[in-house]
């Protein structure tokens, strides 16, 4: 009797084990599917865009600007504008964002005020980008009378990515072990010396990676720049930040809406260029991270 019961239980256990095994395997495939779905979609997008637009890219495409004729239209002004915006947004957002991150992580004492600050910064990251556009339009463009200039665009986008930079800076600072700080203090370093000579170098890969990814998000933004009035037709690159501008996403958006098919080809070509810039920036971020991480030794 007992033997029989034992056998039944063993059978049950075997069945259960099989089920676990099955569960294990199927979860692996579900996870694989989840991972690959993004890659597959990116692949389809790339394939489609490259098929449509790659043949359109030549030197002339980079030297021409807005035109009513698809074959005379190019991305000179838009690419120039995008590069300006990248530069200005970097100059504005990096110091402020990284500074705020350092303050919050290193100086800020835990308390009511700091938790309100923290919650609000996380909330800022969730605000739709078009709202930043409206803010930029009212504050920079109208109240501060900057108009629809590259500076207005850069300030607006800098606001948009500030929360991302702040959060990633804080995460990077958190990875620096506390011993390092204590060791530095023990050797008589001041707080600022500790941050400047120990903590920042150690967390720089993380900070820079986060900041570059934030910038590559900024250059893909369309909505806030449409709101502040970035030009749809423009043939010149700004010579200074106080001039009108346009960016690649706006050019793409406009071309896609055109009735003529040739403009859709132009749009595909411009998308390739924009994707190229984004990939390049992400590549730089990965490379810097890899290089600097090797250098840091505790």
């Amino acid at each position: 009797m007992a033997k029989k019961l034992g056998k039944r239980m063993r059978q049950k256990q075997v069945r259960k084990n099989k089920w676990y095994e099955y569960q294990d395997k199927s979860y692996k495939y579900i996870a694989l599917f989840a991972t690959s779905i993004g890659v597959i979609i990116l692949g389809i997008l790339l394939y489609d865009v490259v098929l449509d637009g790659f043949g359109r890219i030549d030197l002339k495409f980079f030297l021409d600007s807005s035109s009513r004729k698809a074959k005379n239209a190019g991305i000179y002004a838009a690419l120039g504008g995008t590069l300006w915006i990248m530069l200005l947004t970097t100059l504005i957002a990096f110091p402020i964002g990284i500074g705020a991150g350092i303050y919050l992580e290193e100086y800020n004492k835990k308390g009511r005020l700091s938790s309100i600050l923290e919650i609000n910064i996380s909330n800022l990251a969730g605000i739709p980008s078009i709202i930043y556009g409206l803010l930029g339009l009212e504050i920079f463009s109208r109240t501060l009378m900057m108009g629809d200039t590259a500076l207005t665009g850069a300030l607006t986008l800098a606001l948009l990515i500030l929360p991302i930079i702040i959060v990633s800076t804080r995460e990077a600072l958190k990875t620096v072990p506390y011993n390092l700080r204590e060791a530095s203090f023990a050797l008589g370093a001041s707080k600022w010396q500790t941050i400047w000579h120990q903590i920042l170098p150690a967390s720089l890969p993380g900070i820079v990676t986060g900041a570059i990814l934030a910038i590559s998000r900024a250059i893909g933004e369309t909505a806030p720049l449409i709101v502040i009035g970035a030009a749809t037709y423009i043939t010149s690159v700004p010579t200074w930040p106080n001039e009108s501008f346009t960016v690649l996403p706006i050019q793409i958006f406009y071309w896609i809406g055109k009735p003529q098919h040739d403009f859709q080809v132009n749009a595909a070509a411009a998308i390739i260029v924009l994707l190229g810039i984004t990939f390049l920036m992400n590549g730089v971020a990965v490379y810097l991270r890899y290089r600097w991480q090797k250098k840091v030794k505790w």
Binding site: F140, L144, M145, M146, G147, L151, N242
Partner: peptide
């Protein structure tokens, strides 16, 4: 600084 810069360019345009 920012606002003066804005004014300057407005008169320029």
């Amino acid at each position: 600084m920012i606002s003066s810069c804005g004014n300057k360019e407005n008169s320029e345009s």
